[in-house]
């Protein structure tokens, strides 16, 4: 049975966890390996930057047109309308579905599949605490999601730094990089917490994914529905829906909260995308405390649910 190469003669247990990594890091590394080896992750990351890609193409052609005819006012008019930090808002907000897809791809099965395979019996029978497990799983989704959200933004930022300093890129908002670097982890943490919390409730990743997708779309649908009902009931003109009580309804959904968070952190109400004039008014940024509080509260509840659900064995009371 036992091969001659089998050697169980040495022991490392007395050395404790000395040479090894902490449990959360082991689990996080496993999540990262799994995420970064998925082709779909990289495809979605590129797709998530679609707004920047189109904007870069527009910027490139306008620059070329300006080079060809320096008397043309096209470039000066375009750059006059462009608010740089709003491009980051649009790049982020227009890709909500992509961020959701990545969160589902990486996180829906994170705990649900472990529940199905009884893997918690393996994890928690090692010197790995519940907090290590949860934090490791959370980080395993959070970091790739940060990469997916942050990479297109940072590439666009770098391109603009190299090409549009004289077009007011830095003057617009000197703190823009800092704002982006806060927005990305906060948004990723929000998605990660919800998807991990939902995943812990199920025994199948697909069901957990369907539940989060359902929550996402249904909350979006109802927030829009409530907004319309409110506007009708109060006879508020469409031009005024971007402010006052009506705006609150806009942010009462998963993507609404994230958009609100982005507006708060980027300190903008937004301008039309691509510098094109829009017919509908921009929704004003929500109250910062409401946006931050909402995001933190939802994420905390989701993590708490996961914390309660994670156990090695089901104890029937």
């Amino acid at each position: 049975m036992a091969s001659p190469v089998a050697d169980l003669s040495y022991r490392d247990v007395e050395a404790g966890g000395g040479p090894g990594s902490p449990g959360w890091l082991v689990l996080a590394r496993m999540g990262w390996r799994s995420a970064f080896s998925k082709r779909a992750f990289w495809v979605l990351t590129v797709v998530g930057g679609w707004y920047y890609l189109i904007l870069l193409a527009i910027l490139y052609f306008i620059e070329q047109a300006n080079l060809a005819d320096e008397t043309s006012r096209l470039a000066s008019e375009f750059f006059g309308r462009i608010v740089w930090r709003d491009q980051f808002l649009h790049g982020f907000a227009f890709s909500h579905l992509v961020w959701l897809s990545i969160a589902l791809l990486l996180g829906a099965g994170a705990i649900a599949n472990d529940n199905r395979a009884n893997a918690l019996l393996v994890y928690l029978s090692k010197p790995c605490r519940k907090v290590d497990y949860l934090f490791g799983k959370w980080l395993g989704v959070f970091v790739p999601l940060c990469v997916a959200m942050g990479l297109p933004m940072l590439v666009f930022f770098a391109y603009c730094v190299l090409n549009f300093r004289e077009r007011g890129f830095f003057d617009d908002d000197p703190l823009l990089l800092g704002r982006v670097l806060v927005l990305v982890p906060m948004a990723a943490a929000f998605h990660t917490s919800i998807v991990i919390g939902i995943s812990s409730l199920f025994n199948q990743g697909r069901l957990a994914g369907a539940a989060y997708a359902g929550l996402y779309f249904i909350s979006g649908f109802f927030s829009q529905l409530m907004l319309i009902i409110f506007l009708r009931a109060t006879a508020t003109p469409l031009e005024q829906m971007g402010s006052g009580q009506a705006q609150t309804f806009f942010y009462l959904s998963v993507d609404g909260l994230l958009t609100g968070l982005a507006k708060v952190l980027l300190a903008t109400d937004g301008t039309p995308p691509f510098g094109i004039p829009a017919r509908t008014p921009q929704i004003a940024a929500p109250d910062p405390w409401m946006a931050l509080g909402g995001v933190v509260l939802v994420a905390a509840v989701a993590v708490f649910v996961a914390w309660r659900r994670i156990r090695a064995v089901e104890v029937v009371k």
Partner: peptide, 23 residues
């Protein structure tokens, strides 16, 4: 019956070893 989904046997057992405190 328990295992860690999505891993080969050697990955699974190595992961268990890492969780057990090995480098």
């Amino acid at each position: 019956d328990c295992h860690i989904p999505g891993l080969s046997a050697v990955q699974y057992v190595a992961l268990a070893g890492e969780l057990g405190g090995l480098s």
